[in-house]
């Protein structure tokens, strides 16, 4: 027994001769926002479908909330916003949430509290009596999100929750995800918007060709090697030599005279600044730059893309 909310070992899905997911091995801890990243066709959707028992794995083992896949008791504490969701458009927003509440087994009193609360959470409280058929794409996405949170789940799967949303809608969804984390829910987020994942996720997994290539926490990324740009008044060869004591790959750009170097550790940054100033150089610029998630994504996933 572990206290992981998602624990999979070698989940595999074959469709005939085609392998959609070769080996899905990952773990998601309680209360963390877990980003699931990969190019189109990498097996993301099939992975989510297996976890939610929409599709049966060919091989492998997995537990959600310490219960085997498909366990009904576990499902009472799981929420899901499907990617290409389409709901019964002839239902009103409040009827729609009531229906899904009933399917979760919530009684009338519980639904009476949850439905207005969630309508308000996604900013649709004044649209309760509007039919879903009259909703915009963004409103549908938000009501879908409300549906996934009806049962106050311990684990929520969000499959592309911000696709088709405008920047304001994306912001609303992002704030909701942040709020969910603060309330201790685990979120499994599948998104193409890397900047968003960067802002909301604790850890990310990169998947390509049906395999997890790397799982790391975003904090680890920050502590990892960083690129630094230095610009001083009159750079000298002694300066370059001195900087080489702090980091590697010290290169002066021929065009603007800026010096680029790689630091092994962020903690060296103050000492470096101190040394430059103490040595009598006029320091105009000292810019640390982490690899963005996008750069890292391309690095991890893109390396072998051309094969």
């Amino acid at each position: 027994m572990t206290d992981l909310v998602i624990d999979t070992r070698g989940l595999r899905k074959e469709y005939g001769a085609k392998v959609a997911v070769a080996d899905l091995t990952l773990d998601v801890r309680p209360g963390e926002v877990f980003g699931f990243l990969g190019p189109n066709g990498a097996g993301k959707t099939t992975s989510i479908k297996m976890l939610l028992s929409l599709t049966k794995p060919t091989a492998g083992e997995a537990t959600l909330l310490n219960r085997p896949l498909g366990d009904l008791a576990a499902r009472t504490r799981i929420g899901y916003l499907p990617e290409h969701f389409r709901f019964h458009e002839w239902l009103r927003a409040d009827e729609f949430l009531n229906l899904h509440g009933e399917l979760y087994g919530m009684d009338r009193a519980a639904r009476g509290v949850a439905v207005p609360r969630l309508l308000a959470l996604v900013g649709l409280e004044d649209r309760a009596a509007t039919k879903l058929g009259a909703f915009s794409k963004g409103m549908l996405q938000r009501i879908g999100l409300a549906q996934a949170l009806l049962n106050d789940p311990a684990l929520v799967f969000l499959d592309e929750p911000t696709s088709g949303l405008d920047p304001i809608g994306r912001r609303v969804v992002r704030d909701i995800i942040t709020d969910l984390r603060e309330r201790g829910m685990a979120v499994f987020l599948n998104s193409h918007f890397l900047s968003e994942v960067e802002k909301t996720c604790d850890r990310v997994a990169f998947i390509r060709s049906g395999r997890i290539l790397q799982t790391s926490s975003l904090k680890e990324f920050e502590q990892e090697a960083m690129q630094v740009v230095v610009r001083v008044g009159q750079p000298t060869p002694e300066l370059l030599a001195g900087l080489a004591r702090f980091g590697q790959n010290v290169v002066q750009q021929p065009d603007d005279g800026r010096i680029h170097l790689t630091l092994g550790d962020e903690a060296q940054l103050p000492a470096l600044a101190n040394w430059v100033v103490q040595s009598g150089y006029s320091l105009y610029e000292l810019t640390p730059a982490h690899l963005s998630l996008e750069e890292r994504f391309l690095q991890v996933v893109g390396e072998e893309m051309d094969e």
């Binding site: 929409l54 009904l72 008791a73 899901y80 916003l81 899904h100 399917l103």
Partner: peptide, 14 residues
């Protein structure tokens, strides 16, 4: 085909 069923069958019902 429309995936309307996805949000239904992932609820705690057989």
């Amino acid at each position: 085909e429309s995936h309307t069923i996805d949000a239904i069958v992932t609820k705690p019902i057989p």
